[in-house]
């Protein structure tokens, strides 16, 4: 099946006074319709900037310096990177929607939930206010908000965190977008609410067949949500494979270490395993493997040149000179 979104060689850099911060470096991926692509990585790995680039929500001093983002949702190939501001207002919220991390701050405190839903619906669909109201109530009903008719006139401060995130999801999905981008949508919620919201998202995604980019640093969440997983580090893709492969046959040393740092309830652990060292500051870095300084399998050439993103096995890509063989040991 042809993918709905092809991102090729995307680089987004921030031109700061201290130098050029290469937040996203030469990232490429495909997103199929009805597929959930999980993006994992530590804070500062470039995952948020990657998806914000797809939404073209990059502000000065940031700039998308190269790459194309081909969207195929409207029966032809369109490059999001080349769209004008005016064209963008027609695809944002309609073709591609985004959910932010913190539901507490995503809604404008001065307008009712209804206003904020209707505003979006009327921007993208050819309906009058009455029609938009009806669609808005339906959207709230879909995200399981009780008494949606009544809640339309409520303000965001009258909702709990989990309910707010449901409203945000309702707004994002109100115009049946073909792609949904979720940037850590449950990080700010407490665990039980988190599970409910994830269930809801999974259910709606299956129902509406929305291609989804799902960002998280929580590997437990990704295993429940994603079909394929992209692991990012230092602005680059490290591994890209099916969720099953990433969890059961991790190949990149970084993925390995990331998986080992998840706390487990089935074994008694005295301390959690952590990855030694700090993620790099991405200013004026040379083109070498960004993980090399923290990598236990480092070779001499790791800090001299950049490994390519190779197809290690069919549909299992990895960027490493010294990958871990399936079932092999991380430490050499």
């Amino acid at each position: 099946m042809e993918s709905i979104l092809s991102v090729r060689n995307l680089s987004t850099w921030f031109f700061l006074e201290e130098g050029v911060l290469k937040a996203v470096n030469d990232v490429s991926f495909e997103l199929a319709p009805n597929e959930v692509l999980g993006i994992v990585g530590e804070t500062g790995s470039g995952k948020s900037i990657t998806v914000r680039s797809v939404m073209r929500l990059i502000h000065h001093p940031g700039k998308i310096v190269s790459g194309e983002m081909i969207y195929r949702g409207r029966g032809r190939e369109e490059d999001i990177a080349k769209m004008s501001d005016d064209e963008l207002t027609h695809i944002r919220g309609k073709e591609l929607s985004m959910i932010f991390q913190d539901p507490l701050t995503s809604l404008n405190p001065l307008y009712t939930i209804g206003d904020q839903l209707i505003e979006t619906i009327m921007q993208h669909q050819d309906v009058d206010r009455t029609g938009a109201w009806r669609l808005a109530v339906e959207a709230l009903d879909k995200v399981q908000i009780p008494e949606p008719e009544k809640r339309m006139n409520s303000y965001p401060f009258e909702f709990s965190g989990g309910m707010k995130q449901r409203v945000v999801i309702a707004i994002a999905l109100s115009c049946n977008p073909k792609i949904l981008i979720a940037d850590e949508p449950t990080t700010a919620l407490d665990v039980t609410i988190q599970a409910q919201v994830l269930d809801l998202m999974k259910q709606l995604q299956t129902e509406m067949k929305t291609g989804t980019l799902f960002i998280t640093h929580d590997l437990g969440v990704i295993s429940a949500m994603a079909d394929r997983v992209m692991v990012m580090y230092g602005g680059r893709q490290m591994e890209l494979a099916s969720a099953e492969d990433v969890f059961h046959k991790p190949t990149h040393p970084y993925t390995h270490m990331l998986l080992r740092s998840i706390p487990r309830v089935d074994i008694k652990q005295d301390s959690l395993e952590s990855i030694p060292g700090q993620p790099p500051r991405m200013i004026d870095v040379p083109d070498v493997c960004p993980f090399a300084p923290r990598c236990p399998r480092r070779l001499d050439k790791c800090s001299k040149e950049l490994p390519k993103l190779d197809e290690f096995e069919p549909n299992h890509y990895v960027r490493c000179f010294n990958p871990v063989e399936p079932g092999g040991d991380l430490y050499v």
Binding site: M55, L57, D85, D86, L88, T89, H90, I91, R92, G93, K94, S97, M98, F100, Q101, D102, T105, S106, L107, N108, P109, E119, T120, Q123, H124, V168, I171, A172
Partner: peptide
């Protein structure tokens, strides 16, 4: 700099 301003952009509102 607030999220709801960025969210409004993400909804497709004109600047």
């Amino acid at each position: 700099n607030e999220d709801y301003v960025e969210f409004a952009r993400a909804k497709g509102m004109p600047e």
